[in-house]
């Protein structure tokens, strides 16, 4: 424990040196859990609390830079990358036929997929469908981070019951319980809470056994834009910083622990009255895949088209149906 305490202190100092110690950022930084120090000695040797004499600052800097150098990750060659993609980066079905065909199977693990669309265009529906799809096939656990109380277990139960007359080998109740037990829901109402949950998740994933059956496979944030809108804009750029940090963290978790991440975003009026995705230019390049949903008034057919994809040409479109 002693060792951890000291390591924490040196970590804090490191953060302070890198960021110039603004209190705002620091509040976030203090929530960051300790990364595993590759070499425990570096943490012990790094200088402890800043209350020491000014003269020793240079020595401290040097040790900090040594500590930074040790953070360098190992390199991979192309063959290893291919192997990784083949064995660890599977494709998770969304449960919406149109989208699965469009995306060549569904949501890819290790990637961040974003769904944008106006109000009531079917974003939450796609999220619930994907959660159901992953849970139904016994692929693993789904974590649903809900920011606008839109997660409805009732709706999922309804979807389960309506499709179960096809191939039911197990009892209706048993199937429902199995599916519903592997969907986890967590309410999040501000960006700091989201960061905290993501750090907790990272910690949890780090310690979980690799081959265990119920590992978390899919992380859904519905919707990420409602957390970011209140802090974005205005004169200071801290809101943007938080947004980018969240994006980076989501992508990191996706890649390192082979998770598929699905987030939803809303749309705002752009030039000439046409709609465009919210969160602006800096967010634009964070998701790997961006899908746009739209729905004609009064119909239950949703149109989905690709705005950005890593391997599929953008502009392709498909349709899927929401049934009541």
């Amino acid at each position: 424990m002693e060792e951890r305490g000291r390591a924490e202190a040196s970590r804090e100092e490191l953060e302070r040196l890198i960021d110039g110690g603004t209190p705002y950022k620091f509040a976030v930084a203090s929530q960051v859990p300790m990364p595993p120090t590759r070499n425990p000695r570096s943490a012990i040797h790094a200088k402890s609390p800043i209350t020491e004499e000014v003269g020793e600052e240079d020595v401290g800097m040097e040790e900090v830079s040594v500590a930074i150098d040790r953070q360098q990750p190992p390199w991979l060659n192309g063959v290893e990358l291919l192997e990784d993609a083949k064995w660890n980066k599977h494709v998770l079905p969304t449960g919406c036929e149109g989208i699965d065909i469009l995306l060549g199977g569904g949501l890819r693990e290790g990637q961040l997929t974003e769904i944008v669309g106006p109000s009531s265009s079917g974003k939450t529906q796609v999220c619930l469908c994907s959660a159901l799809g992953v849970a139904d096939l016994n692929l693993g656990v789904v974590l649903f981070l809900d920011t606008c109380n839109s997660f409805s277990s009732h709706r999922i139960a309804h979807m389960v019951n309506s499709q179960s007359d096809t191939l039911v080998k197990e009892g209706k109740e048993g199937r429902l319980k199995r599916i519903m037990s592997s969907i986890l829901c967590h309410s999040v109402f501000d960006i700091f809470e989201l960061m905290d949950v993501l750090h907790q998740l990272e910690c949890k994933l780090k310690h979980q056994v690799k081959s265990s059956g119920n590992r978390i496979r899919l992380l859904i944030v519905d919707s990420i834009s409602s957390l970011i809108t209140p802090i974005l804009g205005g004169k200071n750029s801290q809101g943007r910083l938080m947004m980018i940090t969240t994006g980076i963290l989501l992508k990191k978790i996706a890649n390192e622990y082979n998770l598929s991440v699905l987030v939803t975003n809303h749309m705002v009026g752009g030039e000439g009255g046409s709609l465009k995705p919210a969160l602006g230019e800096s967010w634009k390049n964070i998701p790997h895949v961006r899908l746009v949903l739209s729905r004609d008034q009064g119909s239950n057919i949703c149109n989905v088209s690709i705005l950005k994809h890593t391997i599929i040409a953008s502009g392709r479109a498909a349709k899927f149906v929401i049934d009541n």
Binding site: F144, S181, I183, L184
Partner: peptide, 8 residues
């Protein structure tokens, strides 16, 4: 995960 609940 602290505060999380299963759909069940």
């Amino acid at each position: 995960l602290k505060g999380a609940q299963t759909a069940w």
